[in-house]
Simulated scan of single mutants.
Amino acid sequence: MGTHLITGAGSGIGAAVAARLAERGEELWFLVRDAKRAAQLKAQFPGSNTLIGDLSAPDRLSWALGQQAQPVELDSLLHIAGVVQLGTVGDLTTKVWNETLAVNLIAPAELTRLFLPTLRVSRGHVVFVNSGAGLTASAEWGVYAASKFGLRGLADSLRAEEHGNGVRVTTVYPGRTATAMQQRVRSQEGLPYDADAYIAPESIATTVLTALDLPRDAEITELTVRPGR
Rank of each mutant, 00 (worst) to 15 (best):
Y198W: 13
T210I: 03
P215R: 06
E222H: 12
Q183W: 01
M181N: 07
L212R: 06
S187M: 11
T224L: 13
Q188D: 06
D196R: 15
L191S: 13
V185I: 15
T207D: 12
G190S: 10
L214K: 03
I199D: 02
L214C: 10
T221D: 10
V225G: 10
R184V: 10
I199L: 15
P192G: 05
A195E: 11
L223I: 15
Q182E: 14
T210V: 06
A218P: 07
T210G: 12
E202K: 08
A218C: 09
D194F: 12
A205H: 04
I199Q: 14
A205D: 01
D213C: 04
L212N: 03
Q182F: 00
A197P: 00
Q182A: 12
D217F: 11
R186F: 00
M181G: 04
M181Q: 14
Q183V: 05
T224K: 14
V225L: 13
Q183Y: 00
E219P: 00
M181H: 04
R184C: 04
R184L: 12
A211T: 03
Q183K: 12
G190N: 06
V185E: 04
R216Q: 13
E219M: 13
M181C: 04
E222A: 12
D196Q: 14
R186E: 08
L223M: 15
E189D: 07
I204C: 09
I204V: 15
Q188S: 08
A218L: 10
S203F: 04
A205W: 01
D196I: 02
A195S: 09
T221R: 15
R184H: 13
I220Y: 07
L223F: 03
E189V: 02
P201T: 04
Y193F: 15
V185N: 01
L214T: 14
S187T: 12
E202Q: 13
I220P: 05
A211C: 10
P192M: 08
T221G: 09
M181P: 07
A205L: 08
D194L: 11
T221F: 09
Y198S: 05
D213Y: 03
V225D: 10
S203Q: 15
D217P: 00
V225H: 11
T207E: 14
A197Q: 14
T224I: 14
T221L: 12
L191K: 14
D194W: 09
D196K: 14
A218I: 03
R186S: 05
M181V: 02
E219F: 03
T206L: 11
D213H: 08
R186H: 09
I220Q: 09
V225K: 11
I220C: 08
V225T: 14
